[in-house]
Simulated scan of single mutants.
Amino acid sequence: MNTQPVDVVEWMLPRHPRSASRARIRLLRQAFEWQIDVESAEIALLLLSELVTNACHHARGPRDRLIGVRLLLSTPTLLRVEVSDASPALPVPRHAAPDEESGRGLELVAALAASWGAHPRGEGWIGKSVWFELALPSPAWPAAVDINS
């Protein structure tokens, strides 16, 4: 069985409030290229935005540290999105009170993703990675269509 991802895309973003929107734009472009269905792409955009926003606001580390984003199309029906930052503190989901304006990001991730988690980055790296996976519907069209068939 092949366990290698079908495709991987990575980029780095500054720890800045605008990075969430920049990440969404890049993910949207990649979702189009990978022919990910609209509903799955919208969910991925929302969840990526939550993770990047968390990395910008909550990651305790030097301000000049970058945020890493990695997209893996593991199979044609599984998308994994990872967000890495310089903080070693793993996220802890909490239940926000109805009158609170924030604090629901990880609840959204848990509710909408097939799975999610966080782990310290590997040896030689600082910080952590927070990830989620989305189950994608079977592609409606084959990746390559031979019009001469």
Rank of each mutant, 00 (worst) to 15 (best):
R22G: 09
L13M: 07
N54S: 04
A20C: 01
S115D: 15
S87W: 00
S40E: 05
G117H: 08
D37K: 01
H57W: 01
I126Y: 05
A118K: 04
W131L: 09
R94V: 12
T3I: 07
L51R: 00
L108Q: 14
I25W: 00
L78I: 11
D146T: 13
P88C: 10
A86F: 02
P120T: 06
V130M: 14
R104L: 01
L48V: 10
D85K: 02
V109P: 07
P139R: 13
Q4S: 08
R63N: 04
A44R: 15
H95V: 10
A86W: 00
W141N: 12
W116C: 12
R24I: 15
R15H: 03
A20H: 02
A118G: 14
G122H: 03
L79E: 02
I36G: 04
R70T: 12
Q35M: 02
H57K: 08
I147S: 10
W141S: 14
E123L: 02
Q35V: 06
F132V: 14
R94M: 06
P142E: 05
R104Q: 05
L73G: 11
A110S: 07
H95L: 10
F132T: 15
Q4M: 05
L112Q: 11
L112W: 08
A96F: 01
A111R: 15
V145N: 03
G127E: 04
E39P: 03
I147F: 04
F132L: 14
L79I: 10
